[in-house]
Design a protein around this nucleic acid. Structure first.
Length: 772
DNA sequence: CCTACTACGCTTTTT
DNA sequence: GCGTAGTAGG
């Protein structure tokens, strides 16, 4: 028997064997779709003799891409040479880098994030004399982004807008915005797709080249694609029609950013002879969990009817805690996690999922207090921190002097006495000559048009020029260090001497580490950060020369690109032992033995926005989100909700989420019947829970750190050097007496009576108790 | 040109 | 309830 086809069910096998022609796989949650895609590609290479260089596999996140590559290589027992396994965005960047000149860009273009975009819009509003109190920058950006999702060009937008006062205004801003981006040699996220489609449409020979190259295409999470992405894929697949898309309409949760469920229906229109295969057997969850998921999702009217089924056992009932406030809620979560650990589950089998990032705060404080290692995935992105953005702005300026946003960000950081008036002077000159801000600065200095202000600008120009010179001679790591040194940025931070400044320095060091890692990734092929593995060079002969130029050596542009395409979820590592705190959106594609769905309240989940919306489908999207959350769980599902919650400084009172009420009561277990929790009075809502900040006595320390896990790096001890009755000392709670030690599945649970904090229960491995 | 204070807006989700 | 952005005063 062929190992690739082994252990697949009939439907899965059918999908793997169908390598030619258009194929739509409707794969329910946990039905083994990743396995099908992976095995299908392996089968093509091993059994059908397809050249890996002809394969393009598109995923949604870098993490999914590197996972797929890893599995693939494991299965084939060798490096996967020449295949592109990447996200939509990184795929398009690679294509654009090679043909940027055709669109009027340089190949070292930069990518603007949301902040950069906002800055550009703000400047445009100033220029067009638009009152940003009446028209928000974010509103313009939203309009422009939706237009791009639907491939509506500036011209088309303007045409549609005629007669409508508001839309005409947007059209004007849209036009200016695109001009500004081009002047800055920058693309925004949406542009990466849109401009690639533009390239394909304007240059049929370029498109043809890629059609020839990518004869076998597959797309994961197909339900999340927007129109632009759909067109991009359709164009590529038009010639050979070997395209496989995998999706689940019930897991479509990105409508708000343009995902078009219609793409699933359109697929059969654009590719008329498409084979459709349904995967409905679930291999992930217990029957109880699956029943709950099916019950909830069945309330959606607008969906392709399908029912997941399983051979698995019923398993335990779903637990529900509906408590008074978020602190108690968090403590219930902690108590149940303790039980699971006691039963032998590792911490990384547990995940707390929530609707909004704001909810992570109360949970985080509880985890700190309980001394349980955790990690918040997402939230404030590492690359959005001030100091990181500053350093990156320096690098962008060095790499691409046309990036006006970057130049203006750091021209006066650290202070060089260059203020608004000086910047306006340079801006005016740039406008006059029609050149970028930095080249205006440079030529203006040469021609001496800035007068006295020039004396402040010159040192900045000289700094950038000297760094540019270094850039070609030294490593990336050294370049960052030299930038920090010569600009005086590091010196300023070091002089500050505050906890914040120290955290910033740490973050910058982390960035330097990442730069080193990036450079190292080129030494061993295919161990890169997951986007590509950089091994296109190897497949000579069958491939055009132009593909050879991709990613063969580390470059400043390459590093900046990788950094700007990183998502929060990419840093998640399932193998490390900590509890994950994560939004349901980010958790899509992950699975855990034990899942806690927190904040199950009407108004929060489903959000008020969805409840109040005229459009029924907004509520259905929330319900799909609930479905995604529930189906992350393999063994245990715990639902928690709080009667009260602070929202925007005000306490809101909420009812239990309607999604919980959609679960059959028979498979729900309410916490009132829960004996385990009642046995532990110190874990109840009394005492310490009402005022957690007082108990902490300090700002939660982990809030400041980039890597929360760091705080808990303690190995499992073989034995304990203290026993019942001994005096011990704890890093936060001070001194106390051990009153009990229980043996759990993987660890000892130690109960200590602290002098200042009372009785606490903790795990020996994490508590770092020292015998006195 | 820099600092300190105030006001406002935010909380739905992200490549 | 917090963080950012804009303004006024030095």
């Amino acid at each position: 028997m062929n190992p690739i086809l082994d252990r697949l069910n009939d439907k899965q096998k059918e999908a793997v064997l169908k390598t030619e022609g258009p194929l739509l796989i409707l794969a329910g949650a946990g039905s083994g779709k990743t396995r099908v895609i992976t095995n299908r590609i392996a089968y093509m290479i091993q059994e059908k003799g397809v050249d890996p260089g002809q394969i393009l596999a598109i995923t949604f996140t870098n993490k999914a891409a590197s996972e797929m590559r890893e599995r693939q290589e494991q299965m084939l027992g060798q490096a996967l040479r020449g295949a592109w396994i990447c996200t939509f965005h990184s795929c398009c960047v690679r294509i654009l880098r090679m043909h940027a000149d055709k669109l009027g860009y340089d190949s070292n273009f930069t990518i603007y994030d949301a902040d950069d975009q906002k800055t550009v819009i703000k400047n445009i509003c100033k220029k067009l004399d638009i009152d940003t109190k009446k028209f928000k920058e974010k509103w313009f950006l939203g309009q422009i982004s939706s237009a791009k999702d639907e491939l509506v060009s500036v011209d088309k937008f303007e045409l549609n807008a005629s007669g409508d006062y508001y839309l005409e205004k947007v059209a004007k801003v849209y036009r200016e915005y695109q001009q500004e981006l081009m002047r800055s040699n920058a693309f925004d996220f949406d542009d990466l797709i849109v401009k690639t489609v533009e390239l394909f449409r304007q240059y049929p020979d370029v498109l043809d080249m890629y059609q020839e190259r990518f004869r076998y295409i597959s797309v994961d999470e197909y339900q999340d694609t927007n129109t632009a992405q759909f067109v991009f894929v359709s164009l590529l697949a038009k010639k050979y029609k070997n395209i496989c898309v995998v999706g689940d309409d019930d897991q479509s949760i990105y409508k708000f950013r343009g995902a078009n469920i219609g793409n699933i229906l359109n697929f059969e229109k654009v590719f008329p002879n498409a084979t459709v295969i349904r995967l409905e057997q679930n291999y992930r969850s217990t029957k109880t969990i699956l029943d709950a998921a099916n019950a909830v999702i069945s309330h959606n009217v607008n969906r392709k009817a399908k029912t997941l089924w399983t051979d698995a056992e019923a398993g335990e009932k779903i637990r529900l805690f509906f408590v008074d406030n978020p602190y108690v809620e968090a403590d219930r979560v902690i108590a149940v996690i303790r039980k699971y650990v006691h039963d032998g589950y590792p911490l990384n089998s547990c995940a707390c999922l929530y609707r909004t990032n704001a909810q992570s705060r109360a949970l985080e404080e509880a985890f700190i207090r309980a001394n349980i290692p955790y990690k918040i995935v997402g939230g404030v992105n590492f690359y959005q921190r001030k100091e990181i953005k500053d350093v990156l702005a320096y690098l962008k300026t060095i790499d691409n002097g046309r990036d006006d946003v970057a130049v203006k960000r750091i021209i006066n950081v650290p202070k060089r006495n260059i203020g608004a008036s000086t910047i306006n002077l340079v801006d005016a000159f740039a406008g006059e000559r029609g050149i970028s801000f930095y080249s205006a600065l440079d030529t203006g200095l040469v021609e001496g048009v800035f007068g006295k202000a020039g004396e402040k600008l010159r040192p900045f120009r000289d700094l950038i020029e000297s760094l540019r010179k270094s850039a070609s001679e030294i490593s990336l790591k050294e370049l960052i260090e030299e930038t920090l040194d010569k600009s005086g940025y590091l010196k300023d931070l070091q002089a500050e001497q505050t906890p914040e400044s120290e955290a910033r320095i740490e973050n910058i060091e982390e960035l330097i580490n990442k730069a080193s890692a990036y450079e190292d990734s080129f030494r061993e092929p295919s161990s890169g950060a997951g986007t590509d593995g950089g091994s296109d060079i190897t497949d000579s002969g069958s491939v055009e020369d132009v593909f050879v130029m991709v990613q063969e050596s580390p470059s400043l542009s390459g590093f900046l690109e990788e950094v700007s395409l990183i998502a929060d979820i990419d840093s998640w590592d399932g193998s490390e032992d900590y509890v994950s705190l994560i939004t349901i959106h980010s958790a899509k594609g992950l699975e855990f033995d034990n899942v806690f769905l927190c904040g199950m309240e009407d108004g929060l989940f489903p959000s008020n926005f969805a409840i109040c919306s005229e459009d029924e489908s907004d509520l259905e999207e929330e319900r799909r989100l609930a479905y995604v959350g529930i189906t992350r769980a393999k063994k245990h599902l715990v639902l928690t909700a709080s009667k009260t919650r602070m929202v925007r400084g005000e306490t809101m009172v909420s009812a239990l989420s309607r999604f919980v009420r959609e679960i059959p009561p028979l498979i729900l277990e309410n916490d009132r019947d829960n004996v385990y929790l009642r046995e532990r009075p110190q874990e109840s809502s009394m005492g310490s829970h009402s005022k957690p900040k007082v108990v902490l006595g300090e700002k939660p320390f982990a809030l400041q750190s980039a890597d929360h896990k760091k705080q808990f790096e303690v190995k499992n001890q073989a034995g304990l050097d203290y026993g019942v009755g001994d005096r011990v000392s704890h890093i936060k709670f001070g001194e106390g007496v051990v009153i009990a030690i229980d043996e759990g599945g993987r660890d000892y649970e130690v109960t200590v009576d602290f002098e200042d904090f009372g009785i606490k229960k903790m795990f020996a491995a994490f508590a770092r108790l020292e015998k006195l």
